[in-house]
C-alpha cells in the first residue's frame, strides 16, 4: 500500500513548521514519527497535499522535571519516555504506559505529541493525561498557549489545535504515588478494546478511560464516588456513565461498558481504593 502523492518538506525549526502550516493551511499535516499518520495515508483515509516533517527537531525531545510538573517534549518517543529516569521517578504511570504502546518498533518511532494530537480515543496516552490532569503547550504564529487536557479532545480525531499550531510540550503534575493501568487486547500489540487508568493525584484519584467514546474520557462519576468514600467495587459500577463506546467486531456497547467496570475496579484497587 502506497500513500497518495504529496509534497514533503523537512522543517528546521518549530517556527519554520508554523510558517509552513500558516502558508498551506489544512492541506498540510505535520509528520512526527508517522506511526499514526502514515498508516492512515497508506489506507488513503488521509491524503494531505503536504507533509511537514518535524521528526528531526531534537530540541522537542526531552523529559524534564520542573517544580510542580514533568515536562515532556512533544517529539519525545514512547521508547525514550519509558526509559526516562525522570519519568520513572516522577510520572511512573506515564513511563509505564508509554512502554506498553504498540511494540518496540512502534515505540522507536512514535512520539507522545503525535499520539496526543492525533486524538484517537483508542490510544493510551490521552487517558493517562486526563487522569493526571495534564496540560498541553501549543505554539502558533502568535506565540504559545496552554490547553487543559480535558479541553483538548473535541470530537472523533479532532483536537483543539488550530491548523497552524504545533503541540510542543506535554505537562503532567508530578505523581510518584500509586497508579493502575488495565488494557484489554486480543493480541499484545493491539489497540485497547477497552482500557482504564487510575492515578492518585493531589486532588484525589483521577480515572481515565480508553476507547469508551468518540474522545478519550475521564470517568468523573467514578472519581466523585471515590472522593465520597466508595470502595473500588462500588465506584467502578459507575464506569459506564457518560460513555458512548462504539460497537464493532471486538464487542458490543454493553460488552465494552461491562469491561470498563471490571478494568476500572482493578485499576482502583491498585491505587488502594
Amino acid at each position: 500500500m502506497i500513500p497518495a502523492s504529496f509534497d514533503y518538506v523537512r522543517a528546521g525549526s518549530v517556527d519554520e513548521a508554523i510558517g509552513l502550516l500558516s502558508e498551506h493551511g489544512e492541506d498540510a499535516k505535520l509528520l512526527a514519527g508517522g506511526h499514526s499518520l502514515l498508516p492512515l495515508m497508506k489506507l488513503r483515509l488521509a491524503q494531505p497535499a503536504m507533509l511537514i516533517d518535524i521528526g528531526r527537531l531534537r530540541e522537542l525531545s526531552y523529559v524534564k522535571e520542573e517544580k510542580e510538573y514533568v515536562a515532556v517534549g512533544a517529539l519525545t518517543r514512547h521508547h525514550d519516555i519509558a526509559q526516562s529516569p525522570v519519568a520513572l521517578a516522577s510520572a511512573p504511570v506515564l513511563a509505564h504506559v508509554a512502554g506498553q504502546i504498540g511494540d518496540p518498533q512502534v515505540r522507536h518511532r512514535g512520539t507522545i505529541g503525535g499520539s496526543i494530537s492525533h486524538g484517537d480515543p483508542a490510544s493510551d496516552l490521552p487517558a493517562v493525561l486526563l487522569a493526571l490532569g495534564g496540560t498541553l503547550v501549543v505554539q502558533g504564529p502568535n506565540g504559545r498557549r496552554e490547553i487543559d487536557a480535558k479541553d483538548f479532545f473535541l470530537s472523533f480525531f479532532e483536537v483543539a489545535l488550530t491548523p497552524e499550531e504545533v503541540l510542543v510540550e506535554v505537562r503532567v503534575p508530578r505523581s510518584s504515588g500509586q497508579w493502575g493501568f488495565e488494557k484489554l487486547t486480543k493480541r499484545a500489540q493491539d489497540w485497547a478494546i477497552v482500557g482504564a487508568v487510575a492515578v492518585k493525584t493531589s486532588d484525589g484519584v483521577g480515572v481515565g478511560l480508553i476507547n469508551m467514546g468518540p474522545v478519550p474520557l475521564r470517568a468523573s462519576a467514578v472519581e466523585a464516588a471515590v472522593t465520597s468514600g466508595a470502595k473500588a467495587i462500588d465506584a467502578a459500577q459507575l464506569a459506564g456513565e457518560g460513555t458512548d463506546p462504539a460497537a464493532d467486531f471486538n464487542g458490543s456497547v454493553a460488552y465494552r461498558q461491562h469491561v470498563a467496570k471490571v478494568l476500572v475496579r482493578r485499576a482502583l484497587e491498585k491505587v488502594g481504593v
Binding site: 500500500m1 508517522g34 502514515l38 518498533q105 518511532r109
Partner: peptide, 27 residues
C-alpha cells in the same frame, strides 16, 4: 502485512528496530 503489525519488514534505523513499511524513505 504492510500495516505495521507483522514485523516482517523490520530493519535497523541508526541501530534501532523499526518497521520499514511505516517509515518514509525521506524520513
Amino acid at each position: 502485512c504492510d500495516t505495521t503489525s507483522c514485523g516482517a519488514c523490520t530493519v535497523l534505523l541508526n541501530g534501532e528496530s523499526v518497521k520499514s513499511c511505516t517509515v518514509l524513505a525521506a524520513q
